[in-house]
Structures are given as structure tokens and as C-alpha cells.
Design a binder for these strands. Sequence first.
DNA 1: AAGAACCAAAAAAACGTTTTATGTTTCATG
DNA 2: CATGAAACATAAAACGTTTTTTTGGTTCTT
Lengths: 340, 340
Amino acid sequence: MPESKITSVEVARLAGVSQSAVSRVFTPGASASKQTAEKVRKAASELGYRPNVLARAMVSGKSRIIGLLVAYLDNQFYPDALERLSSVLQDQGYHLLVFMAGKDASNVDNIVDEMLDYRVEGIIAASVSMSAKLAERCQRLGVPIVFFNREQNDKTRFSVTSDNYAGGYTVAEYLLSLGHKRISYIAGWEYASTQFDREAGFNAALTKHNMQCFGRAVGNFTHEGAAVATRQLVEQGLPDAIFVANDHMAFSVMDTLRHEMSLSIPGDVSIVGYDDVPIASWPAYSLTTVRQRANQMVSKTVEIIVAQIEGEALEPLQIKIDAPLIVRNSTAPNNQTTSA
Amino acid sequence: MPESKITSVEVARLAGVSQSAVSRVFTPGASASKQTAEKVRKAASELGYRPNVLARAMVSGKSRIIGLLVAYLDNQFYPDALERLSSVLQDQGYHLLVFMAGKDASNVDNIVDEMLDYRVEGIIAASVSMSAKLAERCQRLGVPIVFFNREQNDKTRFSVTSDNYAGGYTVAEYLLSLGHKRISYIAGWEYASTQFDREAGFNAALTKHNMQCFGRAVGNFTHEGAAVATRQLVEQGLPDAIFVANDHMAFSVMDTLRHEMSLSIPGDVSIVGYDDVPIASWPAYSLTTVRQRANQMVSKTVEIIVAQIEGEALEPLQIKIDAPLIVRNSTAPNNQTTSA
DNA sequence: AAGAACCAAAAAAACGTTTTATGTTTCATG
DNA sequence: CATGAAACATAAAACGTTTTTTTGGTTCTT
């Protein structure tokens, strides 16, 4: 019958040992004789004792809390990643304290301060950037940061992304191989490295084949923005194919083309996305896309951050997870009489 | 230039005051003269001092941490709610520590223990149930629990849900008003109160009109499960209309009917969902559904939990937020020659 | 048999705050 | 001018642990 607030002192009293003996029994590293361990464990379970993590954190400096900074969760990729992240960390005895950055990055500094107030042992910044000064400050305080799905210009940081450049490159080559000539691009938020790298790879491949992007509009990674961008793009002239900077926008693009403009996909226009969120495989969209291997990205992120927390001195690293093209039914060979 | 680990003692030294003076300047309630406050603030900002939340939590008993227990995030309703929840709490100076319960509820007890180890000030259990004993234990420890989107049998707890019974009732009446005769139901996870109440309300309305449910299959709230359930249901005979226990499954049902069975929605079958997640309004689905007002549900949840944390003694309450039917294009009047 | 060497346990220090008890100063009031 | 009440500041206790230091009892060596 567990009472309200049981401390190690009371367990010690019941077990007839010192308070520090209780502590040692409950700390993995420490040593205690079999006898005392037995007595302590018995008393503890009798009283329903559980160590106070906060008190432990105070003196040991280990809060077992990792701060997660995230801007939004409406792109399905993030809840999915969050779920895995949380599970994996949980298995290692860490937990995520969640901080929403909101759409504007203006207050990231304040939020990071709040995180540090909780003495988080590490920070995972998902789809959020950070001033070099701020990142430097965390580093100095011994709080490792890993950027998840966002790379910093500053190459002295850790980041885990898919290979966005290669992904974009592959998409362009694939669309060219289908015989498409007028290939357009719908961009995400201009200041995101994911956006930038995907487009750079995409353009590099086009250039290599002596082509250039047929049209371009900005969707800012939002559903509504993508619809607007689609209209702009089509006004400039109908493309054969559109590469959309992520799946979340691609769905909006497909809906707009199909239901607003009565165009057929892939008959009139081929569409390629990026992420391979679960919805992409749903028959309603069956979206050809580039897979971000969420599992691997999460594992790597956790591996890096835990290693740093446990004192390993790693060299700053920009991990890029291989990102394969998943071909579905939103793309088809170009069957139009090309160039008039 | 902020140094590594600044404590109130060092600020006190620089400001030429006692350490407790520093504390009082940084605790909202406490009083301090303008002069000292000024000196302290200056010294603090010079050193980059920020109070250690964990240390504060130790002595004051206020961790400003709220535990969020959640089973899964693939139903878009939850990330959406989580985002709002986190933002609202953040504004009030609380933060969410996330715990994934996983699919099996077997280990909920352990997870709640872990939460308590962190001295969370309250627990929000989203789409997760809890043994009466466990809930009782938290109560006794002074840690309030609010069940979000899940009601406990035990009416001595707090819960916030939409009015699932009324919602289900409305759906049945609406489908009947469209002239449908063969109305089937795809259930969620059988042990969820949301599932139970929606179906109960639905059946009550059918009964009232001297009808009964034409067919029933269980989808367990999963995408794949819903596809299987759809096949089972259709094998039993094609319904005029299907009420699906949530949107997440309804999308799968629609996809299966349309792309696997080449049926038209709403031409051959009308579909109604529950939740009104953002995807429901996308043209690809344009799903008629019952709206759960996530904003209101979140506000109420936060209101209740914060009030209890701050010491108000509320009566246990089962809040049911009004849940309006949102009619879109997945439903239409029955145009079939009825009953042969 | 005496000292070293070890070991388990206990005692005490530390972590960085808030809170309580105790002083001190100021200031108005009789 | 003395007095009591505010108002503020300080010192010290407390929070519940881990970690370091001290203690005391064995066992081993020589």
C-alpha cells in the first residue's frame, strides 16, 4: 500500500540501513552487498518507493530529459518521426520535453532558453533552424544539439537528414527518363535546407541534360500555399510534370489539379513528392515520391545525441540517409506530342 | 558573455546582495525593493543567469511538467491536438513530457510510474485508458489526471471528449433523412469509449426509427484494419451507407471501395466519418463527418488540469463538447430502387 | 601479532533553488 | 521621542537525491 510521498530516508529507516545504502542499491553503477540490497528492495517495494528523478538530476546533473523543438506537426512526417523518436528514447531511459516553435522562428532563442532552464541533456531541433550564436551557446553549456531534417549552414553542427540533393537529382533524372520536357517545381519554405538541397539536386540533374526548370512557384510547405502555387504554375503554362518539395504539398497539388482544373494524373501531369509519408501510398494519391527513411533518421539522431550525452567526443557530422525513389502511379511516360 | 553554469550565488555575489534576494527577484510572488531588483537583474543578465527549474521544483514541489500519455500519432487528430495542447500549456508556463504507450495497454502501469518519477504535476491521457487502481493512486499522490478523447467507466475521473453519443445519433438520423435503408457500421477498437459511445448513439437513432444496423465489422481504428473490415462488410451485402467510427479509417474505407471495388462515393455508397481531421476536407475525400472541436477540447483539458494543479477542488466531470455534423460530398440521397 | 589493505556501510557534503525564521531599517503615528 | 508596524534583507533550513569522505570491521601479509 503505497503512501503519498516516500523518500529514501523512510526506506532506509524501515530497512534498518543508511539512506546512502538505499541510493546505492538504486543506482546501477554502485555496489552493495547482497544482504542490504535484499533488505532495501523489500522495504522499498513495501512502501512503494521510487527515486525522485528531479532530485537525482540536481546532484548528478543528469535529468534524462531531451528537449524536442518542433515547428509544426501537420506534415505527417513529423508526428511519425516523433512517435518513433519518443519510443526509442524511452527504451534508453530518456524522455522528450516538447516545445513548439510556432511558425515564426523569431522566438527560437527564448524557447531554447526555456529548454535550458529544465536542464535538458540534449536538444533535437526538428525542422527548425537556429542562429549560430545560439547553437554555440548550447554547445558551450555542454548541451548537444542535433538538427533533425534540417541542416545548418554552419558545418560545425550535427544534423541528420535524408540525402536531399541526391533525392532531388534522382527525381529529375527519373522524370527525364519518362520523356518529360516541361518539368516544373513547387518549392517549400525558401529558407529551409531541405527545400534548398532538393531543388539544387533537381536543377543539377536538369542542367546536366541541358534542360532547365520549366516553371517555379513557392508553396512554403503548407497545404494552402501549395494550392496557390499550383494555380500560379499552371497559369504560366501547363507542365508535363511537377516535382513538389514534399508530400504534404504534393497532395494539395494533386487535389487542385484534379478537382479544380479537371486534369488527370498522371495522364496530363506527372507528380513527384518527397518524404513518402503513409498517405502517399493510399490509393487516392498513390504518389511517386522519395522515401525519407524515418526509422534510420531517428536511430541515427538518437545514437548521436546519446553518445554525446554520455561523453563521447564526436566530430560534427552531417548525416545524410540514402533516399530511394518510390515509383507509384502519379507518374507516367510523357505521351504528348512534344514541343508542338 | 554567459559562462557555463551560473547559479544564484554568483549573481548574488556580483550584485552584492544575498542569494535569497536573487531568488525573490526571480519568483513572481515575492517582494523585493526596486533597488535590489535592479541590481540583481543587471548582474543576472550580465552573467546570463537563469534559474534552474529542477532545483526550484525540488523545494517548491512545482516541476511545471505535465505528462502526456499517448498511444499513437498516426490518426491526424492526435498530432493536431498535441500541437495545440503543447502551445496552450507553453503559454501558461507548463511543458509536456511525452510518453508513448504503444499499442498494447499492458505496460501503462509502468509508464505512469515513470511519469511520477519525474514528479509531473498532472497527467493527460490521450486515447489511453487506465485501471481504476492506477488512477486512484495518482489521485492520492495529488497528481490530477484528465482523460482526453477517452472516457473512463469510473465516473469519478475527469475526461474531455466530444459528445460521441450525440454525434453517432446525429449521423444515423442524417443518413436516414437521406433515405438510406441499409446502413452499416465499421467499428473502432472495441474497448474504446469513443467507439462504444458513437455506436450506441448511432444504434439508438436507428432503433428509434424502427431500423437496425445492416452490417457491422471491426476496423480497430487502424488504416489496414478498416480495409479488411470493408471487405468483410461488402461480402455480407453492399450497404447504402457506412458510418465509420473515425476519419482515419473512413479514408481507408473510401479508398478500398473506390479503387479496389470500383464503387462510387457517394453514388453507390455514402460514407460518414468522425473527427473532421484536416484531410477530411481535402477534395480527394471531401468526407462528411462529425467535427470534434479540437480547440475546445484542448482548452477544456488545460483549464481543468491547471485548475487542479493550482489547488482548486473540482468535482469530477465528464466534459462532452458539442460535435456538429459537417456535410460534404461523401454522402448523397439514396437513389437506388429500395428493397428490390 | 601488528600493520597494511581492503571492503561495506554510514556520515556528511553537495546540488541550486525556495521558504522560513530572524534581523534590521524605515517610517508614520501617537 | 518612543513605539509599533511595515518593508525589506539575510542567514539558515529544507527538498531528495548522488557522491565523497569517514569509519570500522575483516582478512591478508609478513
